[in-house]
Nucleic acid binder design. Structure first.
Lengths: 193, 193
DNA sequence: TACATATTGGAACGATCAGTCAATAACCTG
DNA sequence: CAGGTTATTGACTGATCGTTCCAATATGTA
């Protein structure tokens, strides 16, 4: 049996995630990653492969270990619409609370890389689809429970909410004030009435 | 009087714009720009300064000579809401028709650079504010002309539309289908009813 | 004709880029 | 303790980055 690693690969991935999240893919250098992850070139390349492979792992980690967990809140039983409203609200509060205003790593990557790198575009589409589907489930439940009028289309509303969420991220990154962002979200949510 | 330039600086800026629009700021090299603009290093640096200054000129050009012109459509007299709907529709058609799905240079730059580069963030915020204000004007006019119910808030709706527009751009860059994008826009516009 | 300036093409700058490699150190098993 | 295996380390690669500079050439005006 070999010598064990001196670092935790999961922790290292998470540290790399924050760098990519902050600076974007192109602007992040291996030097940045090495210092942030606090390991040496050899260890990084041996463990995670090159920059592209590391980034794919980071994206995967962000989607499954960071975003998915928050969307779990929407799967709880009980009143659906209040839960949905609370979720949106918390998402916005979280994005506003980040002093760096990094927004969403998925949206950032969509904007930076999606048109060029096909392999990663698939993963990103999948993540957005997951968000849409989760919205759909909670909206369908809301309709079933009589919280949503009969003429509302849960699928269309889910797509609308997903799109609105991305737009909100853009506005937050652009420096919009908290008040304006929240008011705009309320306007958007009024479509559920 | 000196020898005149052999190239049209405006055309050169526009060519540079398309490169930045396609690849983003960081991923665009001076080499890319030189070949696209079809001029030499000396000419480029003498005329436009360094990469950062050139990019600022590009952004300015995009905002004033590319976007502003399209928003002029909203200033026409007559029925306001149909004009607004047509504008949104055309914006989406244009973005979908671009085979490269480059989205919006302003949104791209907000996502890539806004949190880091303060000087450019101001220009971007200004551009987004212009969009919001133009939406506001047309919505205020709609309300005045009785096309919009009395309980609707033009300012809130304008911010909503601006945010929705950005979200739509993200979805288009993420590869959403034309049908879904248009349906989602219709859902968003139903808020005006 | 002569001066002034722009273009051209390329050489070269230091810095940084992503990635490689071999020597060294640390650990586990036997 | 010894032998084997792997992690760590830091120097090193070639390529590319943005930028500067220069000498040669071309073209306008005075």
């Amino acid at each position: 049996m070999p010598r064990p690693k001196e670092f935790n690969p999961d922790d290292a991935i998470e540290k790399a995630m924050h760098v990519f999240w902050h600076k974007g893919y192109e602007a992040t250098s291996m030097e940045d990653l090495l210092t942030a992850m606090d390991l040496n070139r050899g260890s990084l390349y041996d463990t995670f492969g090159d920059k592209r492979q590391l980034f794919l792992k980071v994206i995967d980690r962000y989607c499954h270990g960071f975003v998915a967990e928050k969307f779990l809140l929407l799967d709880q039983p009980g009143p659906a619409l209040p839960t949905l409203r609370r979720f949106i609200h918390e998402m916005i509060e979280g994005a506003l609370a980040d002093p760096q205003r990094r927004g969403c790593l998925i949206a950032n990557t969509v904007m930076e890389l999606s048109p060029h790198k096909k392999e990663i575009a698939g993963t990103l589409r999948q993540a957005l689809k997951m968000a849409e589907d989760t919205f759909f489930k909670v909206l369908a439940r809301a309709k079933q429970q009589g919280e949503l009028k009969h003429d509302k289309d849960p699928r269309a509303l889910a797509r609308f909410l997903a799109t609105m969420m991305q737009g909100t991220i853009v506005m937050i990154k652009a420096g919009a004030s908290a008040d304006v962002v929240k008011q705009t979200a309320e306007t958007a949510l009024s479509i559920l009435n």
